[in-house]
């Protein structure tokens, strides 16, 4: 059980995390989402024991971060967006070092290593120097190092960033698999990923919890707008300009892909046909149009609007 109570964190006068409280049960995969600057990374770092809180408490299975910091850190596995690796070492040498550093005995380490290597799909790469591994494999080494000491809480910050589709699919299965043994807190700005891997969602906005629960709970909320997901071949700037001239477009979020742009667009009412016609007239090379009945994205867009207001 992870218990966070009245957690706040200041940077000088700026309150990055503002009185955040939540509880997460065992063996749950929780998606931690929020706009840039919402306080996600700060909250994660505090929960991971990397930053001391300005106020509040964090407990993992009853172990308090403030009163027993070293025991607390033994319960946590934290993987930042860029995996911290000693790239001159081989995979097994690195894992042995990290395991020992986290207090795993040599006997336990040798027993656990094969299982962790298999679980993180590193078989065949054990004796490779990390510097020679691809980004995807480095992420897996990072996860292996994070779970080697059997933490109660695993925190993964943007675990799929920079991975190709095949690696993303493999990472999903690794994360789901982890959720059977411990609580996993996954921070991501790719909402579809959170939907596919997480049991619950924690949405942070301006340092506060904006939503906590399942996505199904979220979908129960009324909203008159329509959400459309489109993909066009071309530049993001041209698509933005085309959408700007349409008065029924309330909000749009863009994701630049290789040579194309994906956008989730919120419309006033149901104006999907008008949108497609307008984009074609504007010379946009549409590749895909689909409904995006997506409560999480809706909520995200609501927060964006609040931020802009």
């Amino acid at each position: 059980m992870i218990e966070v109570e009245h957690l706040s964190r200041y940077y000088g006068q700026h309150r990055a995390v503002d009185d955040v409280s939540f509880k997460i049960g065992d063996n749950t995969v929780v998606g931690f989402v929020g706009l840039n600057g919402a306080g996600k990374t700060t909250t994660l770092k505090v929960i991971a024991g990397l930053l001391p809180p300005s106020a509040g408490t964090v407990r993992v299975d009853g172990v308090d971060m403030a009163t027993a910091p070293e025991s607390f850190r033994k319960q946590i596995g934290f993987l930042p967006e860029t995996p911290p690796l000693y790239t001159e070492q081989t995979v097994t040498d690195f894992l042995r070092f990290v395991g020992s550093l986290r207090g795993v005995s040599p006997k336990d380490l040798e027993e656990r290593l094969p299982g962790v290597i298999q679980r993180c799909q590193l078989s065949g790469r054990e004796h490779w120097v990390i510097d020679e591994l691809s980004h995807g494999y480095r992420k897996r080494v990072g996860i292996a190092a994070t779970i080697l000491h059997k933490p109660k809480l695993v925190i993964l910050d943007e675990p799929i960033s920079g991975l190709d589709p095949e690696q993303i699919s493999e990472m999903r299965s690794v994360i789901r698999d982890l959720g059977r043994e411990c609580t996993v807190l996954v921070s991501s700005h790719i909402l579809s990923e959170v939907q596919q891997t997480c049991d619950r969602v924690l949405m942070l906005h301006r340092g506060k919890i904006a939503y906590e629960g399942t996505e199904r709970d979220m979908e129960g909320r009324p909203d008159s707008s329509t959400l459309v997901r489109i993909a066009v071949r071309g530049e993001q700037g041209a698509l933005q300009a085309a959408l700007k001239s349409l008065d029924y477009v309330r909000e749009a979020q863009f994701t630049a892909l290789d040579g194309s742009v994906e956008a989730v667009i919120e419309l006033d009412g149901d104006r999907r046909e008008d949108l497609v016609a307008a984009l074609v007239m504007a010379g946009q090379r549409l590749r895909r149009v689909e409904d995006a009945h997506d409560a999480l994205e809706q909520k995200f867009l609501e927060l964006s609007r609040e931020g802009a207001a």
Partner: peptide, 14 residues
């Protein structure tokens, strides 16, 4: 510089 300090900071050592 390389971001590996987090390994040491998150470990149960002083």
């Amino acid at each position: 510089e390389s971001g590996t300090m987090v390994l040491l900071e998150s470990a149960p050592i002083s």
